[in-house]
């Protein structure tokens, strides 16, 4: 991520949500991006997650520049390289946990039996093997978030991107989900977590703090 700027509006109403951020995340890193609301962390998360494109600057993921990709190409990038975990879980209602986990694989064109196997593996990994047929509204918040983690896992992404993953959870579920992320990191996955909670950020190996659309500090945990 080099010299990323995101501008909303035009002329006098122009708002620089992100103002020249440069950031490199190495494979296998566990990075927390912190900042107060209005610091630009949502915008950064959208750009990292290829949900949005920057006004200027270059963003490469696995060496692929996604600056000038169209909608469908961005979908493809999200589908192949990014596993999302959202604050609001964002599971699709009225579809079983297993089908929810399978969905990204379906968009990738993975065969049915194969993606069912991978979905069940991923659910087993988050400890919900016995809940695969339950619909989201039959699961607790913590369980739903773990299904979301399973969905991200099953995609085998280059980057797991978690946006306030514990924002809607009680402390026990929070611990569960964070433990899960630790485990996943321990297996060598790259994780970027967006949060405003210090204890969540503590788990990461590196904490990037944003303020007013700029990087305020970038600290390795070992240095703290």
């Amino acid at each position: 991520m080099h010299d990323i700027t995101k501008v909303y509006g035009q002329g006098e109403a122009e708002v620089r949500a992100v103002d020249g951020i440069s950031l490199t995340v190495e494979p296998g890193e566990y990075v927390a991006i912190m900042g107060a609301s209005g610091s630009g962390k949502s915008t950064v998360m959208n750009i990292i997650g290829a949900l949005d494109v920057a006004t200027s600057g270059t963003y490469k993921i696995d060496g692929v520049d996604i600056g000038d990709l169209d909608d469908d190409a961005l979908s493809l990038v999200r589908n192949r390289r990014i596993g999302f975990i959202f604050q609001a879980f964002n599971l699709i209602p009225r579809m079983s946990a297993a089908v929810n986990v399978e969905l990204p694989l379906m968009y990738r064109g993975v065969r049915r039996s194969e993606r069912r196997r991978r979905a069940l593996d991923a659910l087993a990994k988050v400890g919900l093997a016995d809940r695969s047929h339950h619909q989201p509204n039959e699961l607790s918040g913590g369980q739903q978030q773990r299904v979301a983690v399973a969905r991200a896992l099953a995609m085998e992404p280059s980057l797991m991107l978690a946006d306030e993953p514990t924002g809607n959870l009680d402390s026990r579920s929070t611990a569960d989900v964070l433990d899960l992320l630790d485990e996943i990191h321990a297996e060598g996955k790259t994780i970027v977590i967006i949060t405003h909670e210090d204890d969540v950020a503590e788990r990461a190996g590196r904490v990037v703090t944003l303020r007013d659309g700029k990087v305020e500090s970038d600290v390795l945990a070992a240095a703290r």
Binding site: G49, L51, D71, D72, S75, L76, R78, N79, R80, F84, N90, L91, I92, P93, L103, P104, Y107, R108, R151, M155
Partner: peptide, 16 residues
């Protein structure tokens, strides 16, 4: 709308 957003976020193409 939200469901469509989720689907697109996890990689559904416009075409799909």
């Amino acid at each position: 709308t939200r469901e469509i957003g989720i689907r697109k976020a996890i990689g559904a193409s416009r075409r799909f």
